[in-house]
Write a protein that binds this DNA or RNA. Sequence first.
DNA 1: GGTTCATGAAATGTATACAATATGCCACCC
DNA 2: GGGTGGCATATTGTATACATTTCATGAACC
Lengths: 236, 236
Amino acid sequence: MKCIQYATQRELALSNTNTTAGHDATRQIRRRIVSGELAPGSRLGQSRLAQELGVSRIPVRDALLQLAGEGLVVLRPNASASVAPLSIGDLEELYELRDLLEPPLCELAVPRLTAADLAAMERELRRMDDSLDPVDWLEANNAFHAAIYERAPRPRMVELVDRIRQLTDRYSRIAHQFNEESARSEHLLMLEAARNAEPARLSALVRAHIASGYETMLTFLADAELEAPRAADGPR
Amino acid sequence: MKCIQYATQRELALSNTNTTAGHDATRQIRRRIVSGELAPGSRLGQSRLAQELGVSRIPVRDALLQLAGEGLVVLRPNASASVAPLSIGDLEELYELRDLLEPPLCELAVPRLTAADLAAMERELRRMDDSLDPVDWLEANNAFHAAIYERAPRPRMVELVDRIRQLTDRYSRIAHQFNEESARSEHLLMLEAARNAEPARLSALVRAHIASGYETMLTFLADAELEAPRAADGPR
DNA sequence: GGTTCATGAAATGTATACAATATGCCACCC
DNA sequence: GGGTGGCATATTGTATACATTTCATGAACC
């Protein structure tokens, strides 16, 4: 009897095999939200999305349910879904969560890092340098951190951190130009700590990385518009 | 212009108003899973569930997607969903998460606790004493802890902890008789710390509470069957 | 002017129907 | 005996259709 391994949500999301229209819709809508193409508070009518994606409303419903679970979409019964709003308070909470979760993952992951992982980190650093738009940069940035964390034997925590980082990405994109430069040098230090197999040092660097990211973000977002750019007078 | 507040998933789950068949199905299936009526690994055929719940497959699909997001159900494209399996490693990870998240919530919540909150804690303590079956006890236990945490101005963390505790409940139910007695005295100490508004002390008590719960659970589950009780020869 | 209420239009929730995929079984072969 | 291939069945994924609810508009009223 061959025993098929359970596929986690994360594994499914990464592999494009066996993809259904629902998963495809999820990915597309998620990207539009993280990229800001769909502004916070925008209405997400099922029919409109279905037409835009060339599918029926059912896969769109699946996608909206999934994204609601990820915290990117807000659902209300019998009413249109909308893109989850942004707020300074939410940003603070998200960074607090990252500060709690990412350092322990570092400590667990560093002793298990392989040469291939270090190479992946270097590759993502280059991708960040070569990135042309904020979304590319954020994707490489997440891949850099994921290359570390995924070695930690804590699948749930890794997936959770991944989701949380995805939520902070919506804020990061707005303050992108401020973050990128300071992040670069910090990333280099992190790579060095990973190479030297220093869990405590990497953990401390990550904490500082998170704190500095939060600070720059906060100073920049303090007077920025977090609500919808008044496309259709905002949703609700 | 009246501005409707965003309803979080948690608020929706608690209020029974405006409920749809999908939400109802979600609650029922969730309860069956947490109670163990649906054993880990059991197949969750959409048609069968739909028939049992007296609805069509669409609300069942919604429910399964929701529960997959909560980590109670495992989905694979084009294949039947199944109840998420249990494992010692997963239990360890869940308790590690609780140990990271619950103490900070205590520190934030204690200074904000009201008399009504303390009364709610006492009420849930009585409910635990009066409970007739493990699931009732677990529900009151969660309500006791939620009465504390919900005062923390961290809605995301509160919801996250709630979800994680729900996942550990599946394990707790198995080792229930071992936990209940030791938990009782710890709960009384926690109530006292809350009454005296001692954040640090409550935080420490919660950490100890989590650790002791984990220990008893582990010694009991070490030789217990975590897989499906061979109802229909396992899942897949 | 602002509020309330009714009404039509739009959007969601759900049921049903069909196509695509996986599952289980059995013959078959090594 | 164990593994392989193919076929019938069961199950999921998606489209469409309809019932129900919400939303937007405007009239009536204070």
